[in-house]
Nucleic acid binder design. Structure first.
Lengths: 362, 362
DNA sequence: TCGGTGATGCAAATCGATTTGCATCACGAC
DNA sequence: GTCGTGATGCAAATCGATTTGCATCACCGA
């Protein structure tokens, strides 16, 4: 059977469509309670549900949001961000259009045009990893950027606080007593996160009074394979230069460190501590032992972006980047550094086998 | 500035809105070429783009599709399925609403109602892993099921051919010369894929004339940890009962087999061959050596579902389950079984160190 | 009796497109 | 001259809601 229209309800209740509309939308008591009951009953009886399309045309508000993203498809990250955005949209009574452009500019154009034609109330422009983007023409002026920042400002955006996250990761190692801490970085110059996490690394080192050793900043291909190769180089260092803790750009590379360590009979965390980044479920939690890492707050970012886009969350500044905290997820890959013979020529030698867990000197 | 309406174009071109509509929709030559030009020019000049909302109201076709899924968020699988559905929708000029219900029935209801109110042209009901579902009331009659089959029929659906996939995986081992092949299964009775892959395992064994040994069908928790524990039990078997090849329910469990093997100094594939399932990028490709596995055809399934839902692909049967082939992805975890001393009491002893890669006896 | 005042409900305009007749015109045939 | 016919374009109805302004009625006070 065809959908019930508002006029069907009106006929069934013996009132005008105006009355039905007023009742269904709970407009302030212009209608007597008795009539309201009758209308509601009739609506139920004919199975009436208002057409969002007709309403959208009349009110010029569609209660829909467009989420344009570059690569939902290929990264396991996407999910949590979508989930956050999605949940926030549902809470606000909105539906979301998902448009994955694959990073193709032509498709992006097309997507924006389609969303404009659909008269979405808001748009979110999402990236699958933290980067700087040139927001394409045609998006709604109040578009919110998710996991990316605009090259020229002009948009509100939310990104992970990679600097603080990097610092937190390193502090985790410092607190366990490590002083020779390596940063196993990606060799890909693309990710802005790489630089930020490095800054955090240096910051945490500095606040612990540990001089940064450039030899301990090493790069490799962004994969388990690359991580393994880089770790190998690190572990080949002479005893007193070899790091006791490694902070990795991401969990995949950390998985490579595990392989390198196990290949040479090193136990994690007894002989080597490692901290990852990203908290990729399928990697971090499944390592043996489970990997201590820093989580990307994807769900929270997705939520934030949607709330701001829909005006649920009032953000004072129209043109500011919101930094979202990256919590460290403590698992079992960090322990105290292995005891070792004090070297007379080291600036500070570690004599405690089990140093206090609190941050040392500072 | 406000959106340009069709009447603005009409005014600018000095014609009626009818004419503009006719021209914009390329209706058969009722309008002279000269007028067409004028209209097109005017449309461009005022920056006209038709309102999908108004058109949807008038035509009662919105060119939108609702994709309801249980858990887009938590699984890295989702992406490819979404991408496939998405691409097919774009090709057909449709937009997709993504609704993740988290498996919650109340939210599912809400989602269906919202989509109905939006008057979507089609619906897809997707699951994140192959299972049997009770499709909720209220979905469009022609809804297509993606990665799940309806408990009572009545819907078109597409699922991976797990049986054939399981057989293909085992044939891979048989072809390499293995005859003691274990199936490391999940202990979770939920996934229908578990049973189907087991059937495929038995089928491939049978066609190779290898008697199935129940001791080689072992189960474990669905994780690297569980896979490792189960593999340990398998590797503890006496030499002549120990499997030389292990087919795992999924890549995560296969990763556990790697750990168990490496822990006891076994080299893959020299001492042990392993085949996974799922082809999870972050796991399979990143193992050392890279894991040979069977891929779930997520992209193709997503595409299929969308094409059928939109009527782009004509599927004869209104009520049938389409099986999608799972291709095996050859990497480096399968080799010939290790040479071993012939046991006088074995039914067949392997004497060839490097058996031919073609399927043996049958 | 008449006008004023709430309370209640309705007719009609509107949102921006599509689509169905119908009107107009030029031209040629009779 | 008039009629038919093809070519071209338009007026108006329609989709299903929201919303403004007006109508009606009951009741009350002067």
């Amino acid at each position: 059977m065809a959908r019930a229209r508002i006029s069907d309800v009106a006929a069934a209740a013996g009132v005008s469509v105006t009355t039905v509309s007023l009742v269904m939308n709970d407009v302030e008591s212009r209608i007597s309670e008795e009539t309201r009951q009758r209308v509601r009953e009739a609506a139920r009886a004919v199975g009436y549900a208002p057409s969002s399309v007709a309403r959208g045309l009349r009110t010029q508000r569609t209660r829909t949001v467009g989420l344009i993203s570059d690569q939902i498809a290929t990264t396991p990250f996407a999910g949590r961000m979508l989930a956050g955005a999605q949940d926030a949209a549902r809470d606000a009574g909105h539906l979301v259009y998902l448009l994955d452009t694959g990073g193709d500019a032509a498709i992006e154009r097309e997507a924006i045009d389609a969303l404009t034609a659909q008269q979405v109330d808001a748009m979110i422009y999402a990236c699958m990893w933290h980067r700087v983007v040139d927001v394409p023409q045609g998006v709604l002026p109040k578009t919110v950027l998710l996991d990316c920042r605009p090259v020229n400002g002009g948009y509100r955006s939310v990104v992970p606080d990679d600097r603080a996250g990097g610092a937190a990761a390193v502090r985790e190692l410092v607190a366990a007593g490590h002083r020779r801490i390596a940063y196993l970085d990606t060799d890909d110059p693309g990710p802005i996160a790489s630089r930020l996490r490095h800054e955090g690394y240096l910051e945490a080192l500095a606040e612990a009074g540990i001089p940064a050793d450039p030899a301990l900043h090493i790069t490799g291909e962004t994969s388990a394979h690359g991580g393994r190769a880089a770790a190998e180089a690190l572990l080949d260092l002479p005893d007193d230069e070899r790091p006791t803790g490694i902070f990795c750009f991401n969990d995949r590379m950390a998985a490579g460190v595990y392989i390198a360590a196990h290949r040479r009979g090193l136990d994690i965390p007894r002989d080597l501590s490692v901290v990852g980044y990203d908290d990729q479920q399928l990697i971090a939690a499944e390592q043996d032992p489970p990997l201590t890492t820093v989580a990307l707050p994807h769900y929270a970012m997705g939520r934030w972006a949607m709330e701001v886009a829909l005006g649920v969350r009032a953000e004072g500044d129209e043109d500011a980047t919101h930094l979202m905290e990256c919590p460290v997820i403590r698992r079992d890959s960090v322990g105290p550094p292995p005891a070792q013979v004090a070297k007379p020529n080291r600036r500070r030698a570690s004599h405690t086998e089990r140093p206090p867990r609190a941050a040392p000197d500072r």
